[in-house]
Amino acid sequence: MKKATVYITLKLGVLDPQGKAIQTSLHSLGYKEVNDVRIGKYMELQVADGPDVEERVKEMCDRLLANPVIEDYRFTVEEAVQS
């Protein structure tokens, strides 16, 4: 079993109203040093092992998990820790 960790963020230049709202709230709490906030998504997928695991995860990101028009993504694949 493998664990794929996927990070999805808005592309630079794409307006992030949620990030701006958090930045404004941080400023109102006195954290004036925060210059920008970008919101993203984090996912962990448990996937069956196979020779094309990375290609399959990339395909999942391209087809469903990320919107390639406005989002960038990156991922890692590693052995899943069995508990």
Rank of each mutant, 00 (worst) to 15 (best):
M1A: 13
K2N: 09
K2S: 10
V6Q: 05
Y7W: 13
I8V: 15
I8G: 07
I8H: 09
T9W: 07
K11W: 15
L12K: 10
G13L: 07
G13D: 13
V14W: 11
V14E: 12
L15P: 08
L15G: 03
D16R: 04
D16V: 03
D16L: 01
Q18M: 06
G19K: 07
K20C: 00
K20G: 02
K20D: 14
A21C: 09
A21R: 10
I22M: 08
I22R: 07
Q23V: 02
Q23G: 01
T24E: 11
S25P: 05
L26S: 04
H27L: 10
H27R: 05
L29F: 15
Y31Q: 03
Y31H: 08
K32P: 02
K32D: 11
E33R: 13
E33I: 08
N35Q: 13
N35K: 13
D36F: 12
V37D: 08
I39T: 13
I39N: 05
G40K: 08
G40S: 10
G40F: 09
M43Q: 13
M43S: 02
L45S: 13
L45H: 15
L45P: 01
V47A: 12
V47R: 10
V47H: 13
A48P: 06
A48N: 14
P51A: 01
D52S: 04
V53M: 04
V53Q: 02
V57Q: 02
E59N: 14
M60R: 07
C61Q: 02
C61S: 05
D62Y: 05
R63C: 09
L64G: 01
L65T: 07
A66T: 14
A66H: 09
P68H: 11
P68F: 09
V69L: 05
I70S: 00
E71K: 01
E71D: 09
E71F: 11
E71G: 08
D72G: 02
Y73I: 06
F75C: 03
T76K: 05
T76G: 05
E78H: 04
A80G: 05
V81P: 01
V81M: 04
S83Q: 11
